[in-house]
């Protein structure tokens, strides 16, 4: 196909940029990540520095019930976010992929825009909606449904809403790609064979959309698991997730070795998820 670009004659600047880009990412991406692992095995110094004594202590602390709770809460919230994004995102993705061309472009752009819009500001918008004297409470009290404001902000629920809001586009886009690949004739075939609407979805559309769900799952689960802005702004001090906990260990408690151990745990979970879901999607790929 188009892969016959001859690889003999490179212009000099191409060689230079290949080399320097590799060097740059090695120096400022891979080396720092390796350093995180190194520091996670060191001990904390007297005044918050690092003492280079090798120890497993930081990893043992990860199994402390309090720390474990934060780990589990993060896993749970990220998992739930992924699930709800899939459930809520699928109908939209389906409408998008089966819409007529001009509509498709408009809708796709509308889904893309929040994807690239300032995440901090979008999360802050939910603070305005959910806080005690925010939009939602004022509305409910104004209508007469409530007498006193509900405390909606700084709960697990508000973090969850913020995560779904923040990462939903990441689920919709891969789903659109997956559904577009399913020929509409397959749907017609199912109906010709007397499938109900529900039956067609269960037996034709959903199974064939699996690659989209897997790709979207990776793209939603990973950033949700390591989210910082959302739990910080919408969760407050009580409802910590891994991201806020790591930030606290680094910038407030100044316990770098423990913070590194947490970071490495997060990275391990992220890579494992990526690897597993990636493998599943390779197996599911129609040959």
């Amino acid at each position: 196909m188009l892969n016959h670009r001859s690889d003999t004659s490179f212009a000099f600047p191409v060689k230079v940029s290949l080399l320097s880009a590799g060097l740059f990412l090695g120096l400022f991406f891979f080396l720092p990540l390796i350093l995180v692992f190194g520091v996670s095995l060191a001990s904390r110094g007297m005044y918050g520095g690092i003492t280079w004594i090798v120890t497993w202590e930081n990893y043992q602390r990860v199994f402390d019930p309090l720390v474990g709770m934060i780990f589990l809460r993060s896993l749970f919230l990220a998992g739930l976010t992924t699930l709800i994004c899939a459930v809520v995102g699928f109908p939209l993705a389906y409408c998008l992929s089966r819409a007529s061309k001009p509509w498709q472009l408009i809708l796709l752009t509308l889904v893309m825009i929040p994807f690239w819009t300032n995440f901090l500001v979008r999360t802050y918008a939910w603070v305005l909606i959910l806080r005690a004297d925010g939009i939602l409470n004022s509305l409910l009290i104004g209508v007469g449904l409530l007498d006193a404001p509900l405390s909606l902000l700084f709960t697990d629920l508000s973090v969850f809403v913020g995560l779904v809001y923040g990462y939903l586009p990441f689920m919709v886009l891969p789903l659109v790609v997956a559904i577009e690949r399913i020929p509409p004739q397959l749907e017609d075939a199912a109906f010709d064979l007397y499938a109900s609407m529900g039956g067609m979805f269960r037996h034709v559309l959903l199974p064939l959309s699996t690659p989209g769900f897997l790709a979207g799952g990776v793209l939603v689960f990973i950033p949700s698991l390591g989210a910082f802005i959302t739990p910080y702004l919408l969760g407050g001090g009580q409802n910590m997730m891994l991201g806020t906990f790591i930030q606290q260990e680094f910038l407030v408690a100044r316990d770098w070795p423990f913070g590194s151990a947490l970071s490495f745990g997060l990275m391990g979970t992220v890579l494992l998820t990526w690897f597993l879901l990636g493998r599943m999607s390779v197996e599911k790929e129609p040959s």
Binding site: F28, F29, P32, V36, I50, G226, F228, I246, Q247, V270
Partner: peptide, 21 residues
């Protein structure tokens, strides 16, 4: 793709440590 996939906070703390050390 890895730098685009991993949670940003990992990149943040890793770079912070390199720069400070």
């Amino acid at each position: 793709v890895l730098p685009l996939v991993i949670p940003e906070i990992l990149l943040g703390v890793a770079l912070l440590m390199v720069f400070v050390l």
